[in-house]
Every structure is written in C-alpha cells, then in structure tokens.
Computed example of a mutant assay.
Amino acid sequence: MFVISRHGMAFVGPEVHLDVADDVLVVDLLLFHVTQLRYVVVELKIGRLSPAYVGQLLPRLRRTARHLRRRRRRLRP
C-alpha cells in the first residue's frame, strides 16, 4: 500500500534494498513522485554536511538512478 501526499509523493519504503550488479545498495527513504514519474532518494546523515558525504553519495545515487530506470523500463507494458 502506498501513501500519497497532497504533493503527489508516494512513500515506497524505508531502508529499501536494491540489488545492483554484485552489490546491494540500501536507500534510507525512497519516495516516488506520482505526477512526474520520478523517484526521490533520501539519505539521512547525522552531523554537519561534509564534502566526504557528497563524494560517497554521488556514485551511489548514480547507480541507484540507473537501476531504477532499468527496472521501470522492464515493468512497462
């Protein structure tokens, strides 16, 4: 069951595990924008934002985006 907010965001789930190649990526929160048909990945961190966090997150987000696009293409009729 999806919960859709008045802003068109559906909550997919917390700590979503995605099998990407030989690795498992864990996304803290995964949302889906219903009208734009886009995923929103939320990573939660404690403390101040540092360049090291960004350096770690960007490659993971790229891999997650590629994986979700491929999965969506396979699910289309």
Rank of each mutant, 00 (worst) to 15 (best):
residue 64 T to K: 05
residue 30 L to V: 10
residue 29 L to K: 09
residue 1 M to A: 13
residue 16 V to S: 01
residue 43 E to W: 02
residue 38 R to S: 12
residue 35 T to Y: 15
residue 10 A to F: 03
residue 25 L to W: 00
residue 44 L to I: 04
residue 40 V to Q: 04
residue 5 S to A: 03
residue 9 M to P: 06
residue 65 A to N: 12
residue 18 L to E: 08
residue 11 F to K: 12
residue 74 R to P: 07
residue 56 Q to G: 10
residue 22 D to R: 07
residue 15 E to T: 06
residue 58 L to I: 07
residue 42 V to M: 04
residue 2 F to W: 13
residue 31 L to A: 14
residue 69 R to N: 10
residue 27 V to F: 04
residue 24 V to L: 04
residue 18 L to T: 11
residue 21 A to C: 10
residue 59 P to R: 00
residue 62 R to V: 14
residue 24 V to M: 03
residue 41 V to L: 13
residue 3 V to Y: 14
residue 48 R to I: 06
residue 34 V to T: 15
residue 41 V to E: 13
residue 16 V to M: 01
residue 22 D to F: 04
residue 21 A to T: 09
residue 24 V to G: 03
residue 56 Q to D: 09
residue 6 R to L: 10
residue 5 S to T: 15
residue 55 G to I: 02
residue 52 A to W: 06
residue 24 V to Y: 03
residue 67 H to C: 15
residue 29 L to T: 09
residue 2 F to V: 14
residue 76 R to P: 07
residue 57 L to W: 04
residue 1 M to I: 11
residue 44 L to W: 01
residue 20 V to E: 05
residue 34 V to R: 15
residue 29 L to P: 08
residue 10 A to W: 01
residue 14 P to F: 05
residue 35 T to I: 12
residue 42 V to G: 01
residue 43 E to Y: 00
residue 13 G to S: 06
residue 20 V to T: 00
residue 25 L to Q: 03
